[in-house]
Design a protein around this nucleic acid. Structure first.
Lengths: 215, 215
DNA sequence: GCCGACAGTAATGTCAACAATTTTGTCGCA
DNA sequence: TGCGACAAAATTGTTGACATTACTGTCGGC
């Protein structure tokens, strides 16, 4: 029935993993997943291989697929690369932003202030993703965007645990404001700097988590 | 017989594509490849899917796999990202370089001077790859290295055509010397700057090719 | 003589069954 | 009771065959 079942199943499986329905290191038994997604082993295997290529799952020979466990150290490495890529996109966004783009960015920041005032952590996390996504789109750099999506998928779990750190929104909100201000002011250098500062503080927050976890 | 045939076949197919044995847009008929690599369709298909995930081949529904044709514009985008990633690696390499690393880098540059003097373009292209690879290893940033390898594979064809441009080595040799000098001097900022300048000139060389090709 | 339909061929997408391997559970023995 | 070997079950890796789809060359009609 599905016209392109492979892509459909891959996407469904990705969403399930990103939603945390499968714990890291958990074995992904093919038969079970077949039943859940109503597909055959062949299709499901293709989906697993695609996700493996994107670093979301890993294969062990004769032991099947597992959800890949991205360590905190690796999340830091990934964020270090994100600094570069998102910095580039922010700079380009500042060069290319239109009036309606600017209005959208400001609207997101406005919503952010609202939800931070109400301490709605989940909504803030969602707006955070929307803001970064919008900047990615405005930046219009296919290669950087594609890589960023891969990297982001691998760190959602850590990103989520960060968003629960008390006082974290109070730190990142002004940074987001600075990024949007620089982009709407069409100042590429300032936009790149603001984005780098922002993600650098994410790296430091990860490092703080890291030392907190290993006494 | 092969213990892990999938990885083996994938690698062989990648090498064949990178060596230009299959032209861009050329259809990759599964049966033919099966015969060539002595494997089954299932294994070969897995290999194709992995290479598709890495952007070397592309699938069209019910029309099989083709060698992906990376446009010059895309090669420029990719190199823009390489500027960032290789800049990071160069800076880290400058922080982590050992005496034996430094000796190896200097040896590569020495060989480069020799082959440039003799106008051995192919050997220079090879040394170029070795130098960037060595810096990647010294930099020791798993995430950046992995992404770089993907990006590099996608642009080998354009990289090759660049290496044939007359006078190109004369431009890039001093840049390589500057990079190695900064790394062996343990100066991260200078190393990053030198690497960025080098790859920026690659971008400009691509742009020159681009306007030359479209009158 | 040219255009469109049609059948034949070739290649791909999918499936179900088989073989090989790991994992689990049980029994015997110290 | 604890440990190791063996057997059974479960799971994965692979193969070959089948269905579906796109390509090609030919034939008939206008």
């Amino acid at each position: 029935m599905p016209e392109d079942s492979k892509a459909t199943v891959t996407e469904a499986l990705r969403v399930a993993i990103l939603a945390g329905e499968f714990a890291p290191k958990q074995r992904l038994v093919e038969i079970d997943l077949c039943e859940r997604f109503g597909t055959s082993r062949f299709i499901l295997r293709s989906a697993l291989q695609e996700l493996a290529a994107q670093g979301l799952v890993e294969f062990q020979h004769n032991r099947g697929a597992r959800v890949r466990d991205v360590s905190l150290a690796e999340a830091i490495e990934i964020t270090e690369v994100r600094i570069l890529l998102e910095g580039l996109l922010a700079a380009r966004a500042a060069e290319r932003v239109t009036r309606s783009d600017a209005a959208m960015l400001r609207a997101i920041v406005r919503d952010m202030r609202t939800v931070v005032a109400k301490s709605e952590l989940l909504a803030y996390s969602d707006l955070n993703a929307r803001l970064h996504g919008a900047i990615r789109d405005i930046g219009a750099h296919e290669t950087a965007s594609r890589l960023l999506r891969q990297l982001r998928d691998q760190t959602v779990r850590h990103q989520f645990s960060l968003s629960l750190v008390p006082g974290r929104p109070a730190v990142s909100l002004p940074q987001h404001e600075a990024i949007v201000a620089a982009i709407t002011a069409r100042d590429p250098d300032a936009a790149e700097r603001a984005m780098r500062d922002h993600l650098q503080s994410v790296v430091e927050a990860f490092r703080a988590l890291s030392v907190a976890a290993t006494p």
